[in-house]
Write a protein that binds this DNA or RNA. Structure first.
Lengths: 376, 376
DNA sequence: CGCCGCAGGTTATACGTATCACGTCCGGGT
DNA sequence: ACCCGGACGTGATACGTATAACCTGCGGCG
């Protein structure tokens, strides 16, 4: 603190009560950038203050001063930087370095808790390595199809994209940026790496759980989204049931959302043929809607109909009964994506892990009613 | 996985042979940009392709060529840019222009649906104006207290901050960036503008609804977060009830989350004195937990105890009974914040609107049980 | 003695863009 | 005839940073 017009005098704080009954608050002219901070300090300012050259500042602050700057001057530089509140201009640095240490995360929509958690995990790991993450919610969330690179005001070093945001992928591919796919076909050659959740294992665990309870008529309420991860749910379920004779599997298209789940479940329960005893839903939200449908038909969960979810969102324990579901490690998913991207950026060989999932057994599943005749 | 080194067949190598062997592969001088796709096209490349100067390209693409470039050449420039897939280097532009068209949105945590929707609204409006939005989830979401500007890899033009992220505000204030506060005390002089939701009106509507149904003993399950918006809920509730004689108001501290709501409601319902007939919760998630507590005590919602939420999240219609709640226009909230920030950035006088909220009456409220003795 | 190497610096430069200052060529007003 | 101003362009420059290239003593070693 030297000169620089400092010491803003006490701000004229009205101490308590006595609200200014008029409160004119005129002064509409224009507050010129009078208050300090008008222009940020540059490395040249720091150099001047420390009595060295701008290059020396860059060296010291970049921690590359081993045998180039004396310890005395290095400390002087650091002190000056601190005093001036110096922050490097990231735009200039990016221009010079040719990279931005920023990744783009492409997700279908952010209002889904799942992807919010994926982002959180990715951002946390990124921050630990000096990276930033910006979001590109795909068209359904943000408006008409828009170029991802117009959305990201920073230039990008790489992209992490959910397979559910397939509509944005063509633009991404064209840009030739390093790409990490989330939950995508491992054979997809667009990606430099692929991070997956072990969805198939989750479905198998869930199915085994229902089978063990005695269920034989299972209806799958699908998300109605054309993406690899949802296709995998359906195919794994079909394959698993095929190994147990006497089972019956149906698929009912729903959509994402409570209402969609409700309507699909209603249709599934009132349709022709024997009523299913278990509803396997593509996510927890659909499952919540399905539970509502069951009760509106005068039936109970789980005594009459078992319902299962997927994801283990906060919602899963907010409804009653609490949902039996498959817990997806969302934060770790985002972390793994970011880690893979950083590996690609470092030129190393990226890992393409498959993250384990976990069956969480709660109150929405039970043995089917005793009076139910076994299928066929 | 054997040799990573393999498979660069015919990488470059113009196979035309007869390369002058006097020019061995050495040439360490300077790598000319040989491999097209490796480096992005610059405005200079476009200029060369269109047969004009780089300045002309900038003029045309910046739509500032009124009387400076002929229509013919302008079209040629646009064609060349299209052919080359030219994208301006945003880092260079930011450096030159001194701004980034990027705003930072500071929220307490993203995993809450509410702020995810706020972000979506802000980002949508921003995109329409060529702005981007990056997020700074506050420490609780992202890790230990970290400088917002390390998190944002782009430099920033301004900040939109929720009052719930108060812990990050000191760093923000120090930076002297244009600041728009979300849901904050209008007298707060830190902000260039303040956008509010009409929380007080929502509380009054909710309270009137309960009073009209006949409730006299109301317990407020608070979020336990020290922020202006939650304080306003409590004070407005108290003030409203004070105007109706014979009412009894208690406050029970909860926290954000289903479990917290459950425990707080349990305590509220089993505590000393006559049982409250209505539980007014600071948000829908707490309310969902409260409903669970009611049922675990062998009581029914809403016949024995009415429960109300706040926010109108997706959760509100996922639980049964569906929650009576106050709908907060989250997307519009984010939009209004972004609009105010852009107004500040344009040097204009920003509006500081208060957005209306709406009472949504659903199944979780009903008249109190008839056998309930009036309070006092 | 000559000269190398190294610590401790500085100067110059390039990244890609937007814009200012400067040219040139005209047609038209005085 | 002269100058003015507008249309049409181009060259130069600066934004702030990181780093390559260069410079200067100085102790040591053949």
């Amino acid at each position: 603190m030297t000169s620089n017009q400092a010491t803003p005098p006490a701000r004229s704080e009205p101490p308590a009560g006595t609200t200014p009954h008029t409160a004119p608050a005129r002064t509409p002219h224009r507050e010129p950038p009078r208050t300090t901070a008008a222009t940020r300090a540059t490395s040249r300012d720091v150099a001047r203050a420390a009595g060295v050259s701008q290059a020396a500042v860059s060296l010291v602050l970049g921690d590359k001063w081993r045998g180039r700057v004396s310890a005395t001057k290095a400390e002087a530089v650091r002190a000056a930087a601190r005093d001036l509140g110096y922050r490097p201009n990231l735009a200039a640095r990016s221009l010079r370095m040719g990279h931005t240490r920023t990744a783009l995360l492409v997700v279908p929509a952010l209002t889904t808790e799942f992807f919010a958690r994926v982002y959180t995990g990715a951002a946390r790991l990124a921050a630990d390595h000096g990276f930033g993450v910006v979001l590109y919610p795909s068209p359904e969330g943000i408006g008409p199809a828009r170029d991802p690179f117009d959305s990201a005001s920073a230039t990008l070093d790489g992209v992490i994209a959910s397979s559910m945001a397939a509509d944005a992928l063509s633009a991404l591919r064209h840009a030739g940026l390093p790409l990490v796919m989330l939950d995508s076909d491992p054979d997809d050659d667009r990606a430099g790496a692929t991070v997956n959740l072990d969805i198939a294992d989750g479905v198998r665990q869930l199915t085994t759980h229902l089978l063990t309870l005695g269920h034989r008529r299972i209806t799958h309420l699908t998300a109605g989204v054309d993406s690899w991860t949802f296709a995998l749910r359906a195919s794994t379920l079909a394959e698993t049931l095929r190994q147990t004779p006497g089972t019956q599997l149906r698929h009912h298209p729903a959509a994402l959302g409570v209402d969609a789940g409700l309507h699909a479940a209603h249709a599934a329960l009132t349709g022709p043929g024997p009523r299913p005893t278990a509803l396997l839903c593509d996510d927890d939200i659909i499952a919540a809607g399905a539970c509502k449908a069951v009760r509106r038909l005068g039936l109970r969960v789980p005594e009459d109909v078992s319902v299962t979810g997927f994801d283990d969102l906060a919602l899963a324990v907010a409804v009653e009964p609490e949902l039996t579901t498959v817990r997806l490690p969302a934060e770790e998913f985002g972390e793994a994506g970011m880690r893979a991207l950083m590996a690609v950026l470092d030129g190393g060989r990226p890992e393409s892990p498959t993250l384990p999932v976990e069956l969480v057994t709660r109150g929405s599943t039970a043995p089917p009613p005793a009076d139910t005749a076994p299928a066929s």
